Simulated assay, not measured.
Amino acid sequence: MGPVFGSRSSKEEKAPAADKVTPDLSKQPRDPQAPKGRPTPKRAVAQSQRKSVVASTGNRKEDAKRARERRRVEMARQREALANGDERFLPARDKGPVRRFVRDYVDSRFSVAEMFLPLAVIILVLSMVRVASLQSIALLLWLAVIALILLDSVGLFFRLRKALNERFPDQPKRGAVVYGLMRTLQMRRLRLPKPQVKRGERP
């Protein structure tokens, strides 16, 4: 009788130990779209992208050459995107419907701030002429330009913020208004990404 009970108890002691070692795979979340035993689609794409970027030839010169070529292609795509507004290759700060709306909103209007650079050059030239009357005119002109830019920027700040809240009530808009104000400081022909709307055209 003793050996029989001993063998039964030893089997019962081994059973819980085996349960502890074997993980319960049924409790692990799995994407329903992913085939059994394979990673989810998003993870599979990310893994393939990492492999393609990290893949090494074993030759440092060749790897460096490939890295330079990738950077060159990316920069070329980015320059082209800045020229034609292609959202796929724009820098992160310019991507998204909110930033695109801000650009179109600013580009569809005339802003005093966009004349800052040419006016600053004119004022600088006048201030360098050693004629008291011209220097006084340059100072007054400079003060007038600064005042006009401030007034125009304050008005644009409130109008643009209102337009963004109406158009994109549920989307993040952090930094969008400042992004628009900074764009007004650039002359229209020098703005990047290039303007996609004409003056007076509704964005």
Rank of each mutant, 00 (worst) to 15 (best):
L185C: 10
S7R: 15
A55R: 15
G96S: 05
L160N: 00
P195T: 05
R43Y: 14
W142Q: 13
A176R: 00
L156A: 02
S136W: 06
S127W: 00
A81Q: 01
K95T: 02
L164H: 02
Q33I: 05
V4T: 11
D107G: 00
Q186D: 05
Q28H: 09
Q33M: 10
Q196S: 08
M187R: 10
R130E: 14
R100D: 10
E80R: 13
V106D: 00
A163Q: 00
F158C: 05
A18H: 09
G37S: 10
R77H: 11
F168G: 01
V73N: 15
A81C: 06
A147N: 14
E166D: 12
P97N: 15
P41M: 15
L164Y: 00
R103F: 01
R109K: 14
V4D: 08
D19R: 15
G37R: 04
A55S: 14
A176I: 01
V197W: 00
G58C: 07
I122M: 14
A67K: 14
L134H: 02
L151H: 10
P169N: 04
G200Y: 03
R71S: 08
R174W: 07
L126H: 03
G200R: 03
V197N: 00
V102M: 01
L140M: 13
A176V: 01
K11L: 09
A83H: 08
I123M: 09
L82R: 02
N59W: 06
S9I: 14
S9A: 13
L134Y: 01
E13V: 02
E69M: 11
V53P: 02
R8H: 04
I146G: 03
I122R: 06
A18L: 13
